[in-house]
Nucleic acid binder design. Structure first.
Lengths: 213, 213, 213, 213
DNA sequence: TATGAATGAGTCTTCATTCAT
DNA sequence: TATGAATGAAGACTCATTCAT
């Protein structure tokens, strides 16, 4: 219907660019090569895309968006949960069954677009997306900041670094990154995720029991 | 005294290259720029260094070597520890006081060369060192493989992924990377490390108590 | 009409490249110089030609092709000549009037493109065409192999090296090379060619009369 | 005894340079490589040799000299032979038994230094020796010029190009070049040489019987 | 919508050579 | 005799990007 959004040429470019970016990474990938392999001229490419970075962003946009909204939906719901309830369950499960569901969903999305996710994770250097993960981490961190406040009340003597909320967000994302990087089948990944949930929760609780040296 | 190792020109090149690599990363850094800023001709650079990669390796070699030998020394000592002792302490401390000392030492080395370490960690793409961390992780993993064997005897019903030893090694290194990336002062890093040790150990033990879903 | 084949820039590059290659030979010729003298940027050159070798091949292609097809046409016709006839005339004329015509035609083509032919002959070292002459020689040799078989029947006692067919092909081409290298006018070359035909035939027959030492 | 002529370093350089020049040809060979492989500094090389060309000449000088003096000795002797005798034998043997001996000797020298000879013949482009063969040809031509004079008296009606003496010298050398290029064993080369002598003589005589077209 | 010619600064790397020591 | 540091121009080639058509 619209103009610049639908076009065989555009699709062809994206398709070839995806392959190239995945194989070479952002910096090493060459627009020339992409054009040549797509059977398209440079001019055509520049009609549809502002520059190399724009093309890259377009290529990885879909899964990135899916991931981001999944995460945001989750946190929006989360926030509405009664605070009291949180406090009650906190000592047991920092990762709720709701969390677990979201993680599974995220894993699913990631495995549906595994190559692109890996591209974002390891091949985005030089592009404007080279630090996207940070956005996810930061979004995630807000949750843990709140929880940290509660925990501090439960364990007033714990000597815990102020970085811990960020670390926890970071390591949760990291677990996902690890999974998709090292485990090939989604099924196995899901199983591994059970270990991860246990691991992350165990780690979390232990931190609050750190004794002063 | 020696020849190709000491030279004002060589030093100047290394010094400028270090700055450039840190600022731009391996790929974006330009030998031309380095030469120009060092007030040296290309020929001079190529007299001292085989190519761009060689220059990069030379720049980061010292801290890398320090890190590697620290780690190796540690594992060599570790291996000589009586196996029985390991089994006894296993249920309590997977990270021994010896481990803790090594981690502190590693953190110290890292902070002494923080910029270079960050360079290796985030700016080596394209060079022959783009995957060095993997070597550290693999070296570390061997330890955890052994421990996993023991744990499986203690918790025969635990449903644990075969990837777990690698993950654990990975996350330990990751904790170090996180530290140096996010925490500016070494002092604070050392404190944070206490949390990390608790975190890692808590995570480790929890994994073995994962119940079948 | 067509695109990449016609272009003022392209023509200019080829024209200048031809001059440079002729003056310097393939290896010594510099693309930088060619671009500069053609008033063209490097990028432009590389838009039209894959690399230095591609440019070189383009420059010399026309006369090479003309030569090759002339030769091939000749041999195709030749093969259809009745074998008996060959045997009959063999003792007299190894170089038929048909051969002579072809040689004249070849000489004509060569003189039309004398500089380029000399370039191929003496300045192609380093390019993919550095051994093209061998292809001509080999194509030519096949003819003489057949004739050698016949001659052996006529002169069963002749002690002749198995290399002789190749040598004969080689020396025939060599005669052409000599001509174009040393004789400036085509007219004179044609006259000289009469001597060459006599020379080659005389040599050929004498070989078969070589007595055992 | 003398200084710059005898030296282990110098010998080593020559030895390595010989290998490199043979493998790469004059232009592609790199002095850097030669120095590195010889375990010698550039300075050392430039102490013994003026430049790349000087080194090349030194490397190939011995066999070149041997060839040249053999040829010159031959021609000096030849000239002293009684002119009458020449005239008598001319109609039969343009290549005398003395010639044959010289050719054999030359072939022998060539095979003793085959690699270097091939280097001179095919790898000297760019050096000051790229046209040495011409010197041999020119030296040889003088002989044939004389003979041509005689032949013209014997065959006053022959229509022979003035280039013929040069061609004959050229082709004689060419026969030698062909031999060393295509035939591996000296023994076989000697046998082939019998065919060559017959060939060259047959060619020579036939030329004088060329009839006007 | 697309073409395709053209830009021109940029890439890493190699070269023969020089010269103070 | 040799060292080895340094030159600096030159090598082929690639890049993302532009723009008239």
């Amino acid at each position: 219907m619209k103009s610049t959004e639908n076009s065989e040429t555009r699709d062809k470019i994206i398709q070839v660019a995806k392959k190239e970016f995945i194989e070479q990474g952002y910096m090493k990938a060459s627009l020339r090569q992409i054009c040549k392999k797509a059977g398209v001229t440079t001019g055509a490419l520049y009609f549809f895309f502002k520059d190399k970075d724009d093309l890259f962003c377009t290529v990885v946009q879909a899964p990135l968006q899916a991931l981001y909204s999944t995460m945001m939906d989750h946190y929006t719901i989360e926030k509405e949960i009664d605070e009291k309830e949180i406090l009650e369950t906190l000592s047991k499960d920092i990762i709720s069954s709701e969390d677990k569901k979201t993680m599974d969903k995220i894993i699913h999305i990631m495995y549906e677009n595994r190559e692109l996710i890996l591209l974002i994770l390891t091949g985005a250097q030089g592009s404007s997306l080279e630090n996207v993960i940070d956005k996810f981490i930061n979004a995630s961190e807000n949750q843990y900041k709140l929880m940290c406040e509660k925990m501090k009340k439960l364990y007033p003597d714990a000597k815990v670094s102020p970085h811990i909320s960020h670390w926890f967000a970071h390591d949760q994302i990291n677990a996902l990154v690890y999974t998709i990087t090292h485990i090939d089948s989604e099924k196995e990944a899901m199983e591994f995720n059970n270990n991860m949930v246990a691991y992350l929760m165990g780690g979390w609780h232990s931190v609050w029991k750190t004794e002063v040296e």
